[in-house]
Nucleic acid binder design. Structure first.
Lengths: 203, 203, 203, 203
DNA sequence: TATGAATGAGATTTCATTCAT
DNA sequence: CATGAATGAAATCTCATTCAT
């Protein structure tokens, strides 16, 4: 039973190494298989194709992170009454997301830095889109309460980009989860200071 | 004289198109040459290799931008007496850099988004390094004046990253130079607010 | 009992679809099995190999058609006294063969148009050979009665070819049995007109 | 100069052999190149792909045959006044077409019997279409002159098929041009006897 | 200046088939 | 009765690069 997925797991393991080293595009299936002691065709029994093998590595982390993002940014639903996020909010968010991220450390680094050429190459943009929608809601509410102002779409997108990027930068530059948590909090607070002002433009 | 490098220029022109479409890695030299009405070997007369051709597109913009960066961040030399950068500073910087960037619009977009696999794939990091050194000087000075504090290297790097990224994001999302200038100023001001605090950690 | 060969039948059914779509060569056993809800190896329990599976589809129609051909062209045995086939003869033959053919419509279309690469790829030639032998008998008799003439082997083969081809063309271009019967009769009559003359050459 | 296309010609030569032996589908480019003393990639310098290489063999014969067909079946244009083709007509046609065909003997045999899987696999149908159009004109004229009759499309197609097939059968069964000419004439005469009657159906 | 030819290495993918369980 | 795993061979094609001319 423990042997059942031995080779599949082996394949995934060596794939991680190869993708990490060379990136999706230049990674060689032949090498992965040889390293795993299997023949090239074996990949195609377990996975649909090269993207499928890559997916076997990154699909779960993507799912978990998406869920966390959705849970945090969507669950508050329609009934939030204030756009005043406090420091605590960010701390909670960080304390929820960082552990998820660091439990898939290798996988995430691969996904975020080595996916070019794969069908996941735009995954960061997807994450950005997710939070951008929420930020847009907040911004629109705020704009409605400030006469003569409207939401600046560029700034909204850039701020969303910055937020996601803070996490991407974190995991790609700091391998310790503990340190990561300590670093991300002030960063989020820094980013939140004045962002609403930045986002509003004269009508 | 104008005909002398006709073919070289043609090659560069079609290379831009191809690199823009497919990225460095997947771009086909054969297609570039065919499109230019030349044969494959021609590239190797004018350029060392694929990277050389890519360089013919991006070397000049890189040089100009580096000069601007150095000019702004280094020229002040040792004699600056204050870390208090004012809004005007950033505006000057933006008004100097943006025109340079937008005068190489296509080339820069290629460099910043399509260079993976080329020897320029880490160019953004190089830019970051350049400003990071200067920020480090400022931060060290500031730290020296605040007892019990030292510079947090991670934050320093991240802030540098953010700054460069603001420009990268700009040129890859806003094609109008005029609008770009209007957008970048509040962004730089936003970023500068509180960054020194962020960068200092308890010793 | 009806369930016993359920999977075997399922396999055959999906094989028909696949062979029809892609032809023997390009048909994928893996796809057939997947479609049938089974795994690749299953084919090799029920059938010897790919050709065996193909045979499971076409063997019965081949047998029935061969029998009809033999029955019609051989049964008359040695005792026919005339080479004068009348219209009625052909009508009888057509009325006997067409129903057999159309009761295996799908199978026959597959056999006649999709068997390239299989061991059945020359089946039409086999059918031709069968009737060619009989035509040869007739022709030799006729030749014997006409001084200075001998049978032209090429013409004999071509006429046989035409006859079989009339049926192949029919089933691959007309799916209605009723119409098929109406069409084949004048065709056979057309073909029989003057064929004996064609077949004889000056010695 | 005589060496200029040496390798290209060599490639074509060995391709003929390989295609003839195994058919388009199963033919191995690798083998063709090895036999020609070249590497696999060489094919892709001279030709677009496998179909391109096949085309280098069969394109010219196809063109010549099409021209002959068109010349014979189309040139008479609008001014033909009778549908009564005489024996001489067929003889002329045969004497024109057969030499063309036999001057591309190998190429045609490959095209007609080994093209399955290539983009030429339906070439025979194309030829049939060409003459079918002309036969249709003749048949419609004839039908117009016989009250209560109309053209039977199936018969029209079948007759066209028979005519083309007579030539296909010829070149694939008789390698001598001289004999071919002697054989095809009576065949065409045989086919033309009564074909108009066959083609007309009661309205 | 550039061509045209060719290399050589490698890429992903597909497939029928086998076999222990 | 059928699975699931894996093989092993081959397939087409693409590419940057080289080099004699």
């Amino acid at each position: 039973m423990s042997e059942k997925y031995e080779n599949k797991e082996k394949l995934i393991e060596y794939a991680k190494t190869e993708f990490m080293e060379k990136g999706f595009e230049k990674a060689s299936l032949r090498k992965i298989c040889t390293d795993a002691g299997l023949t090239t065709g074996a990949v195609y029994f377990f996975f649909k194709d090269k993207n499928g093998l890559f997916g076997a590595i990154v699909d779960e982390p993507i799912k978990k992170i998406s869920e966390t993002l959705i849970g945090h940014f969507m669950n508050e639903g329609e009934d939030f009454r204030t756009y005043e996020h406090t420091e605590g909010d960010h701390d909670d968010f960080a304390e929820e997301l960082i552990p998820v991220m660091y439990s898939y450390y290798d996988e995430l680094v691969i996904l975020l830095t080595k996916s070019q050429g794969s069908k996941y190459e735009n995954i960061v943009d997807d994450f950005i889109d997710m939070i951008e929608q929420r930020y847009n809601q907040l911004a629109q509410m705020y704009a409605a309460s400030v006469p003569g102002k409207k939401v600046n779409k560029y700034m909204l997108h850039w701020i969303s980009h910055m937020n996601i990027n803070a996490f991407v930068h974190l995991i790609t530059h700091e391998s310790s989860e503990e340190k990561a948590i300590r670093l991300i909090k002030p960063i989020l607070n820094y980013l939140v200071e004045g962002w609403l002002d930045l986002i509003l433009t004269d009508e």
